[in-house]
């Protein structure tokens, strides 16, 4: 028997329209672990994150995903979130007029209500949100703005991490959280992520570059190519990729 993993992805195949993007991804993620999924553009990294989050544009044609032993593919996106899954978007969506504070509070209470906990009131929520914002060097005025509305690239990414910090998920997939960040923003995002590392929680960093991994050191590194994991290793693999690029692995996958 393998050890009991939080997330088990087995032989996952998925397509969008006629294009098959995932060609049999198998991956196990356990509590307390930090994984990095790396790979060239178009290798299927973001698709994997979107499929696990439940985006209806993608059709799963084979394979399975279980989350705490439950068939995740049968769940609606909100049910996955309420059970402790979080996706940090590569391109966070701007939603004009929907207040950031409203979303954070509604999201937190949706999860609490699923867990049978009492909902937080406005006062408790504000205290919690301000505490988490401090961690990310975010101005409290962000709470009163529309969700990502008019945010810079860096502000959007911080906002994703803020949501994660407030929701305290069991498993977070952070899709290209480092892209478009200057070094200061990268550091505060990394601080936010590191503050959430714990033995109950798993974090998956989906990234093209090794840069983020200098600040958030993963326990495991996987390389995705043509919709399949072609190599797994420890942090050393990330360094190897930084030096050699992805081409030598592409050979492996096609050869």
């Amino acid at each position: 028997m393998p050890r009991n993993h939080m997330l088990e992805i087995n032989n996952l195949h998925a397509r969008i329209g006629d294009a098959t993007i995932l060609n049999g991804v198998t991956l196990s993620i356990g509590a307390g672990e930090v994984h990095a999924i790396m790979g060239p553009n178009g290798s299927g990294k973001s698709t994997l994150a979107q499929v696990i989050a439940g985006h209806s544009d993608y059709e799963v044609v084979d394979g399975s995903v279980s989350f705490f032993g439950e068939d995740m593919l049968q769940l609606e996106p909100e049910e996955r979130a309420q059970r402790g899954f979080f996706l940090g978007f590569q391109y966070p969506v701007e939603i004009a007029g929907v207040n950031n504070a409203y979303l954070l509070k509604a999201a937190l209470n949706a999860k609490r209500s699923y867990l049978g906990e009492t909902e937080v009131d406005a006062f408790e929520f504000l205290k919690l949100a301000k505490e988490k914002m401090k961690l990310l060097d975010m101005d409290p005025s962000f709470l009163n703005r529309g969700v990502n509305e008019g945010f810079s690239g860096g502000e959007k990414k911080r906002n994703e991490i803020l949501q994660m910090a407030v929701l305290e998920p069991n498993l977070a997939f952070l899709d290209e959280t480092d892209s478009g960040l200057d070094i200061d923003a990268l550091k505060s995002v990394a601080n936010g992520v590191n503050a959430l590392r714990s033995k109950e929680r798993a974090i998956v960093l989906v990234t093209h570059y090794q840069r983020l991994l200098d600040y958030i050191k993963p326990d495991f590194v996987h390389v995705l190519s043509n919709g399949k994991i072609v190599r797994s290793g420890d942090y050393m693999l990330a360094e190897e990729l930084e030096n050699k690029g992805y081409d030598w692995l592409r050979e492996v996958s096609t050869g």
């Binding site: 966070p92 509604a106 699923y114």
Partner: peptide, 25 residues
Amino acid sequence: DANALFYLRTRGLDEETAKHAITKA
């Protein structure tokens, strides 16, 4: 906006609540 709807749902808001939030805005 389907992307906005999906985004809100990934945060745990059910479909009705997410639609309500977007239409209310």
